[in-house]
Nucleic acid binder design. Structure first.
Lengths: 302, 302
DNA sequence: CGAGGTTTGTCAAGAGTTTGTCCAGCTTTG
DNA sequence: CAAAGCTGGACAAACTCTTGACAAACCTCG
């Protein structure tokens, strides 16, 4: 998306409020700018150049001499490509970006988070951020607009990463939220982690009538079914269907709406409130040889 | 479609407000225009040429030099070539894949569809598929499970393509579904097409309380706000807030729940039921010079 | 403090590029 | 036939390039 090597020197000079001669001097003397060139040799500045100019200006405003300011700006520009940040800082940066409705920055922080792998990103950044957003929303420190904005960007990222999770040769997991339940982010996190362990994912998403989940399970014969619920009532309202599902396939309920006791009543398994735990718990069980139809038949191993 | 290659140069020149000599120069020097020719050699401009001119003008209004503006306009134009294979076959293949819960195949068909560009894929494949799914669901030929399965795969694809749609320098559009409304796919299609035209997108997604949409609009100051609704009641239930929004920004309602009459009552604009129409309609208005705060102030141009 | 050197923003000259516009001579259209 | 178009070349205005220079500001050090 960087087709933006556009501005010629006059426009760029006006844009960043630096005289043309100075722009050329900074390029010549410090290598601060790296404009492309037109076929005739005209400079074509990009947004990267713009960022470097702004960094330079910021440092000079602090009283730093031009040569040093340029060196700092260049160093920052280089550091932008190799960030090393702690998860807590990433969560804070995500919250800041969400508060400012800065989708570009939010996405950049997600880039950094996911550069550490799915597990670390989800466990240490994405889920803590969702919790933080929820907390602040409850304390009215954050508007619904912020929550929607951030949730969408996280969802977009997770679904992008989910590309291809249905392919492969591992056991099949069917993922859904039962009727009424619309919080899918945890479920998608779970699916991603499970796919990392070699599972294939079939995903039905939010608010799926329990009868349809049962029907799909009967057709695709998954090795496991995962139902994610935030609100307890979405389990109790669908109790009969869930019990039916439990008889058909190894069924797991997870999320804050589920509990060990409730799962037992429904005749299904419980995997805790945390999708990371749930995925690792489900994935780390040793699989039976491929000749078995289901690794779960005969109940879960001790 | 638009086989209306009809304007001769004088009329076209007046239409797009570019002198005839300049039109010929842009064609000769940048290949920006590809008018058909009459038997005697007269240029016959089409709506595609008009779109390219508008893209060119948009970039030049941002201060980008003509040569670069033309290159950008051409790049955008290339992304919307008309497919050579039959879209109908793709729709049929998608339905078959959905019926079999074959996510891998479904995704492969989407690959093919989107190889023809966002516009063609959305207009000729994605939207027809959604309509088809809706129809078959109403006739009970398709279970909710199939619908969820397919919707999720389409959503996943669209959101993946939406990566980066917030970046750039064009006018900003704020997209949301008001409270109660959960059908976002059309809205995302709209956003993708608008982003192709150089707009920046800020997205709040489904079921956003109208007060929060207003609050976000007041903060990010979009050039346009788009509300997508399938059910009419989600407009009427939020009437006061929508009118307030209309006073704050150029607000457009679209989708099957909207209508010209209802929009007028609410004091906002109506863009039809089809996101493709809506996006092209909004995008193709010539933008005022960058010095103006909003291209819409003073109402839409004649 | 003051001499001597370095840094930095700015300028100028002369050559080259980009771009909107125009012209001449000829053709097409209605 | 008159109005409108076409081609190809040509041009001037605006813009940009490089190189070299220069003065003011800033340093270092005796």
């Amino acid at each position: 998306m960087d087709t933006d090597s556009c501005w010629r020197i006059k426009e760029f000079s006006a844009l960043v409020d630096v005289p043309e001669a100075t722009l050329r001097a900074w390029e010549r003397r410090y290598g601060l700018l790296e404009p492309q060139r037109s076929s005739g040799g005209f400079r074509l500045y990009s947004t990267a150049d713009e960022r470097r100019i702004h960094a330079m200006q910021r440092h000079m405003a602090e009283g730093i001499a031009p040569a040093q300011a340029a060196a700092l700006a260049l160093a920052e520009s280089a550091a932008r490509e190799i960030p090393s940040t702690r998860p807590g800082e990433l969560v804070a940066a995500l919250m800041t970006a969400a508060r400012a409705f800065d989708a570009t920055d939010f996405d950049k922080q997600l880039d950094i988070a996911f550069s550490f792998g799915h597990l670390a990103a989800i466990r240490d950044v994405v889920l803590p951020t969702l919790v933080e957003i929820g907390d602040r929303w409850e304390r009215a420190e954050l508007a619904v607009g912020h929550e929607h904005f951030a949730s969408h960007l996280i969802e977009r990222r997770l679904l992008s990463l989910a590309q291809g999770w249905e392919a492969g040769r591992g056991p099949l997991a069917l993922l859904a939220c039962p009727a009424g339940e619309r919080h899918t982010l945890g479920l998608v996190c779970f699916g991603l982690l499970l796919a990392d362990q070699g599972w294939r994912i079939s995903y039905l998403g939010a608010d799926t009538p329990i009868d349809d989940i049962v029907a799909v399970a009967a057709e695709v014969l998954p090795s496991a079914v995962m139902l994610a619920v935030r609100d307890r009532e979405h389990l109790t309202n669908n109790a009969d269907g869930i019990t039916e599902l439990g008889a058909l396939a190894h069924t797991v309920v997870a999320g804050n709406g589920a509990s060990d006791e409730l799962a037992r009543q429904l005749g299904v398994h419980y995997a805790g409130g945390d999708p990371v735990d749930a995925a690792l718990q489900l994935a780390e069980r040793p699989l039976r040889p491929a000749s078995d139809r289901s690794p779960w038949e005969g109940g879960p191993p001790a």
